[in-house]
Design a protein around this nucleic acid. Structure first.
Lengths: 212, 212
DNA sequence: AACTATTTTAATCAAATGATTAAAATAATC
DNA sequence: GATTATTTTAATCATTTGATTAAAATAGTT
């Protein structure tokens, strides 16, 4: 009697491969970010993915569940990028500002719609998403926060300064169509304007830190 | 034969009175600003106004036409407030910054959702609204722009400085739910934070102007 | 190769939505 | 007061949307 040969091939499940599921997620990310939740139809996502409409419910059960997943991933991407920068104990305050600004401008140049999407959906549904961010701890216990306090001797509220960094870095992307119109800018000119801001924002922040 | 007495009473048309029409507009403004175009149903507006659903089509023909009207009014309100401030030839650059910041923070404290609404809908449909703003002329031909150029001797791009003023003033309202969460702020604390910014933003702008 | 499990498909469904309709109500005119 | 014009109403409609269904196709297992 010959012993059965036992197959050691791992069970292959499409969920682990993530081919169809991943396609849907990528398409959903694109369309949700571009149009927002309310204006996005499940059919839009299916078309973007080149897949059958019913697969969205098969894999994610509902439009809303798919959206929640995408939204949380996006928020993590947007917010937690600060973590390494703010907690790098070997960099100065000024280098942290430079890194923050460069990091976010580069990120947003490749995904210019991300902040407006996040902030719009956040306002539509604040309770649902805000508590999952985890950036409170990142920020208030960071090396960066300490550095601001030391540099300003409490003259400037550290939180206000962080707001300023975010405002100066992120707002142009949020207001992009308006600024382009006001300034008569093509897209490449807007890109140049943001490159210039990469250099200038750390200088502006530094000048704020120097106020007597 | 007695001459007919001619009635001089002006024809009263509800459109001129604007009672029902005005109610619909006010309700539409509220709901559109709160939920955006896509997430707002005509039934929401009718309920907000306490009127029958069919009146929206009777008076405004379509949801979209009603929205376009509201959007344009909102953009005018938001953008053209700059006009008087920027063209006041008897005020200094610094006073203009103070007036701009105070004016907009006061406006946005009473209508905190306005900027996010405008910028979100602007991105959804840039061609439709941007050309109607008229702020390009207001800004680039303003006394204020001249003052910046003189004060900085071209060291800072004037447009970049205006972006900074807008960013520092408007962004906290756009990001309000996020900032409240991060900073653990109640609404009255957020309001205080914005009052503090009324004072600090002109100082921050001034420090930028002084960069060598 | 046969059987079972999973994925995909196209049709269909139930509910929601912006819009229309026709009648009732109200206002205006003479 | 009778007639006409306008506004309002509630029902209805046509279309759209997220979701479901059942069968076909494909993949996995023995």
């Amino acid at each position: 009697m010959i012993p059965r040969k036992i197959s050691v091939a791992k069970k292959k499940t499409p969920q682990e491969d993530g081919t169809t599921e991943e396609k849907i997620k990528q398409a959903a990310r694109k369309v949700f970010i571009r149009k927002g939740f309310a204006a996005t139809r499940t059919r839009d996502i299916a078309e973007e993915a080149g897949l059958n409409l019913a697969l969205l419910n098969y894999y994610f059960r509902s439009k809303e569940k798919l959206f929640d997943l995408i939204m949380l991933e996006n928020m993590q991407q947007f917010m937690l990028g600060m973590k390494d920068i703010f907690n790098n104990e070997s960099s100065t305050l000024n280098v942290k500002v430079i890194d923050f600004v460069a990091n976010y401008i580069n990120l947003l140049k490749s995904q210019p719609d991300l902040p407006l999407f996040i902030l719009h959906e956040l306002k539509a549904n604040p309770q649902k998403f805000v508590e999952n961010v985890g950036v409170k701890k990142v920020l208030f216990e960071s090396h960066f926060f300490k550095q601001i306090n030391e540099a300003t001797k409490g003259k400037i509220d550290s939180f206000q300064l962080v707001i300023n960094m975010m405002a100066l870095t992120v707002f142009p992307f949020i207001a992009c169509p308006l600024l382009k119109s006001i300034g008569n800018l093509k897209q490449n000119q807007f890109d140049e304007l943001m490159e210039e801001r990469k250099v200038m924002i750390p200088r502006w922040i530094n000048s704020m830190l120097k106020i007597k």
